[in-house]
């Protein structure tokens, strides 16, 4: 679930408010957005992917952590980097060639089941 919104990094573009498919963030007039409905977070990591300044952190857990981690303890921006999104990066899609997928005995040949 979404755990961190770095107020130091955030530039107040409100893109997370726009892109979050479950409407977790709220705009705040004159300030950076806030995590308003953490319980609605579906842990899809897309806010992180779209944040232009790597100010967001989504923990892997489906339920809230007892306390948010410290900024220094998490790799802010690591998912965006893995997707190759951001200035000067090669889009991850350009190199996204997964391994051959093993099929179990009796399975018909076919495209990989991703």
């Amino acid at each position: 679930m979404i755990e961190l919104l770095s107020t130091d990094r955030c530039i107040g573009c409100d893109r997370c408010v726009d892109v979050c498919p479950t409407d977790v963030f709220d705009r705040v007039p004159g300030a950076v957005p806030v995590i308003a409905r953490q319980g609605d977070c579906q842990t899809c990591f897309l806010c992180e992917a779209w944040c232009p300044v790597d100010a967001l952190w989504v923990a892997a857990e489906r339920t809230p952590l007892p306390a948010p981690p410290a900024e220094a303890d998490v790799a802010l921006g690591s998912y965006r980097a893995a997707l190759g999104w951001g200035q000067g990066r090669t889009p991850g899609a350009r190199i996204a060639i997964g391994p051959p997928l093993i099929h179990e005995p009796g399975d018909p040949p076919g495209p990989p089941l991703v």
Binding site: F45, A60, Y79, G92, A96, I97, G98, V114
Partner: peptide, 12 residues
């Protein structure tokens, strides 16, 4: 190859 193919697989 897995990391390249599906980066989100490794997030958890």
């Amino acid at each position: 190859a897995m990391r390249r193919g599906q980066p989100n697989f490794f997030l958890p």
